[in-house]
């Protein structure tokens, strides 16, 4: 190898490190700006929309780990969200265990379940995989419906209590929820940021692009998928636990229905799958739009909100298959 190629390699490496640093700085600025929002927005309804946007951004980013980076399109993430919501609720309501801990319990349960289910489903390809995840989530929904210990079809009501950071109950002021949701998004974003450039990150992208070629180069395809599923399920469940604490009442339909599986995939798909900012960008557009159209147009069950929602999904999927993020990024790397 000549000196000049070594120098150019080193230069490219430096540019890469600089780019990674820049991403961190941009993230810090964006999150800091978002953190200031509650100072200006005092309206409780708008605060609710913001909290949901941040929450779905975080959960969609978790979905993105498996669906975007690793290329395994799950249409059943509502299962993990539900497990998180139920774990936090059952532990808090029945055993007085703080939701902080319940969320983590739900996360670990979900991660273990995701690995177990992965043994069954990761042999399936393409549409077969997507449909299997959908069916498994449906089974989970039916089981929870018929499981009296967790409240069956009636669900679980969180008791009214003192506002407290420990129990994550804030009846008067929604702002603490906002910061918790933002914190969750920052954590998930950082996890993706660091994994993106770890060995797993490279393996996942290899598995997504061409599993056979990856396998032949020594990538452990099956284990890669299991790892992605575990990380993805863990954070989805944590989001579910937070959601339960936030809404204070859950039933099977309100945390585990198929609607949610779609809602976790869509922001990432709209924004751009397998990217750091796709899911947050998608959520920032999709969630306020659907929440606001729902409260203004869908209140009477007229269906207009669904028409807009469906049309939006179609138009973006067809017009910008790479996701909206591609509008903002230059073709990065250039000659590289």
């Amino acid at each position: 190898m000549t000196d000049s190629t070594l120098t150019s390699l080193k230069l490219r490496g430096d540019a890469f490190i600089a780019k990674r640093r820049r991403q961190l700085v941009v993230a810090a600025l964006v999150f800091a700006a978002v953190a200031c929002l509650p100072l200006g927005i005092r309206d409780v309804y708008l605060q609710n929309v913001l909290i949901l946007t941040l929450l779905y951004a975080a959960v969609s980013q978790s979905w993105n780990v498996l669906g975007g980076y690793c290329g395994q399109i799950s249409l059943g993430h509502a299962l993990y969200f539900g497990i998180g919501a139920y774990a936090a609720s059952v532990l808090y309501v029945n055993y007085d265990i703080v939701p902080w801990f319940g969320m983590v319990v739900g996360g670990v349960l979900s991660a273990v379940l995701a690995v177990g289910l992965g043994f069954m489903t990761f042999r399936l390809k393409g549409h077969y995989f997507a449909i299997a995840t959908l069916v498994i989530a449906e089974i989970g929904l039916v089981l929870v419906h018929n499981w009296d210990f967790v409240g069956g079809a009636l669900g679980i009501q969180w008791p009214f209590g003192q506002d407290s950071i420990w129990t994550l109950q804030f009846a008067r002021d929604k702002v603490p929820y906002f910061y918790f949701a933002l914190g969750l998004l920052v954590v998930v974003w950082l996890v993706t940021y660091f994994i993106e450039n770890s060995r797993w990150g490279f393996w996942w992208r290899a598995v997504k692009d061409d599993p056979e070629a990856a396998e032949s180069l020594g990538v452990e395809v099956f284990r890669s998928k299991l790892a992605a599923a575990a990380v993805s399920a863990f954070f989805t469940a944590v989001g579910g636990g937070f959601y339960a604490a936030f809404v204070s009442y859950i039933d099977p339909e309100s945390v585990m229905s198929f609607r949610f599986s779609l809602l976790f995939a869509l922001p990432a798909v709209l924004g751009g799958i397998g990217t750091l900012w796709g899911a947050p960008l998608g959520a920032a557009i999709l969630i306020p739009l659907t929440e606001i159209t729902r409260s203004y147009l869908g209140g009477s069950g007229s269906g207009l909100d669904l028409i807009i929602y469906g049309a939006l999904i179609m138009v973006v999927a067809l017009a910008k298959p790479e996701g909206l993020l591609s509008l903002f990024t230059r073709k990065s790397g250039g000659k590289a």
Partner: peptide, 26 residues
């Protein structure tokens, strides 16, 4: 579409499904 072909097919028909449901409700 060339990019994300599988995903585009899934979500464009899903969008259509939601649109039709909304239309029926409307």
């Amino acid at each position: 579409t060339k990019a994300n072909a599988g995903m585009v097919q899934i979500f464009s028909t899903f969008g259509l499904a939601i649109l039709i449901q909304g239309g029926a409700q409307y």
